[in-house]
Amino acid sequence: MTNPLPETRGALLDVQDLHKSFGPHEVLRGIDLAVMPGERVAIIGGSGSGKSTLLRCLNFMEVPTRGRIALDGRALGRTGRDGTVAYPEGELCRVRRRVGMVFQQFNLFPHMTAVENVMEALVTVKGTPRREARARAEAELAKVGLAEKRDAYPSRLSGGQQQRVAIARALAMDPEILLFDEPTSSLDPELVGEVLRVIRGLAEEGRTMLLVTHELGFAYHVATKVVFLADGRFYETGTPDEVLKHPRGERTRSFLARHSEFAF
């Protein structure tokens, strides 16, 4: 499918024919995806299906091998004469300011306190004065329920608290799109809830987000659209109800069956 999809017009994020290979191994084999403002896309699929790679291509943690990504109607990168697309570092830095990411492993900076983690990029990237950045950082920490932990180093925080600091850190940059890469996968089960509640709060604010997750129940309640990825392609796409409750494809069904095998 190389023709732009009909819903492409007005999309905040528009991905066309995205491919990504690691050496001889092609992980993404032609992804087309348009994300409208306020849309919340849950990306699900088995391990090795390419779901994390897809998310990581969207803020260029991985550089796509082929295909185009447009942000707010503007295609990113420069196309050379031979058709390859080059991405200058300066442009990628600007894109990443607009597309925030929350990682599975939090990736907080261990030599900085919670509030310093949140204000760091405000100061170094956006050039916000320190005092102003600190006030903003404290407000974001309060929003994720961690106002009193602002002076704690990450090593003193639980996994759930660290992930909430990471979310506050991404939010402080005022991103237009938020990417969540399995945000609860490395958490102890009793800490998952506090993180999901924060993400749901962001969903209720109408933020645009893409979420790779194994929490299918959460995806069902929070996403506006679910895509099931298999072998680097979209195997099934639809509303949460269509994909998660009434899957049409055989592989979607067996994936969901495996996930609910030990449900009550």
Binding site: M61, M101, F103, Q105, F106, N107, F109, A121, V125
Partner: peptide, 19 residues
């Protein structure tokens, strides 16, 4: 992950290294 955390916030290579 430290490089990625910095990069994802829009830091350049140089800023990530220094800060």
């Amino acid at each position: 992950g430290q490089f990625e955390g910095a990069k994802a916030l829009g830091m350049s290579r140089h800023q990530a290294m220094r800060r």
